[in-house]
Computed example of a mutant assay.
Amino acid sequence: MNTPLLRVERLVKHFKVGRNAMLHAVDDISLDIAPGESVGLVGESGCGKSTLSRVLARLIDADSGHIHFHDGAQESDLAASPAARFARHAQRGVVQMVFQDANDSLNPRYLAQDTIAEPLRLLVGMKDAAAIKARVEELAGWVGLPTELLGRYPHQLSGGQKARVGIARALASSPRLLILDEPTAALDVSVQATVLQLLADLKARLGLSYLFVSHDLNVVRLLCDRVVVMYLGKVVEQGPAQEVFAHPHHPYTQMLVAAIPDPHRKGQPAQIMQGEARSPINPDPRACRFHGRCPHGEPRCELHTVSLREVAPQHLAACHLLED
């Protein structure tokens, strides 16, 4: 396997929610993203996907852990620079993020051309107005945004057009890694397919790596090389996408896969998770976080957790059942 573009080691992010209460949003997570690879990050709402994305994009600080980024022969720990100062870091441009809701992520007072031009000035250091204009038009062409729309404000654009502005802005600094946080969730179904095809084309054309955060497992299965499954701040399974979807080993992953609409399962009863999810606030460090909802739960699941272990080449899962 190639040297990872991004190597995350034991990343932790907790939020204080009371005098003696901590919400464990990201709890001891490690993962790799190779050059040119798409990694899907999946899990229920509240599992920590967006928090992990924002830590990796250096929008918020981790409590501990490392984010190693390989730029050519040089490796640097992005987590070593506080998020407040990372905006001026030399590597700010190599990791960019496309946000879930373009309405919230675009400045309503900026024209589309100004939104795309801003990282050219701040991160690339371009000063010449003519060169900036030419580059903005080039980026607009890459994402399929007509140049006549560059002079419009966000409220004058459709949802798909705003999504294209956000993607063009992210590409302006020539990043090597794009973090895509549910990039099509706020779009109509007919527009989603077009934007997803655009992202696939850009990845192939520019040699980008993606961290693709999504609830849509079908999209992850089609677009991603590997998948990482999170549950309440923990990674419970990860591996090649086709392998994980064909042979899920963790009970939570099995239930996620079983929930994907499949005409071949017509008439079969759906698997429904029983019980209540554990609280992510001050969780018991000894207990499996899925215990209580897991159909295979045993007393030992309450007493001690297990680490990720290899169940197939490059396929890891964390469950007591694998010990048997």
Rank of each mutant, 00 (worst) to 15 (best):
P261S: 01
A84S: 13
F212V: 00
Q192N: 04
A129N: 09
F245S: 03
R309E: 14
G166T: 01
R226A: 02
A270G: 06
Q254C: 10
M273F: 04
L150G: 07
P285K: 11
P261H: 04
G159M: 02
H89Q: 07
S45E: 10
A168M: 06
S45C: 10
A170H: 06
A102Q: 01
M255G: 14
H264G: 08
S45L: 09
D101P: 04
Y153T: 05
R221F: 00
L208A: 04
A83P: 06
M97Y: 07
H70G: 06
H304Y: 14
F15T: 01
E237S: 05
V95P: 08
L196A: 01
R169N: 06
V39S: 03
M273C: 02
Q113M: 13
C288A: 14
I29V: 15
D262K: 00
V195W: 04
S190V: 00
V311H: 06
L139P: 12
E243P: 00
G159Y: 01
L31C: 09
R152C: 12
A57Y: 05
L321Q: 12
E302D: 12
L149V: 01
A259Q: 05
P280D: 05
T115A: 15
D61K: 11
A172P: 11
C319A: 11
H291T: 12
H250K: 03
G275K: 02
L120M: 11
H249L: 05
L256P: 10
V42A: 03
P248S: 08
V236S: 08
E118T: 06
D114H: 14
T115R: 09
E323M: 07
L196F: 02
L223V: 11
S190I: 00
G18N: 07
M230A: 05
V12K: 13
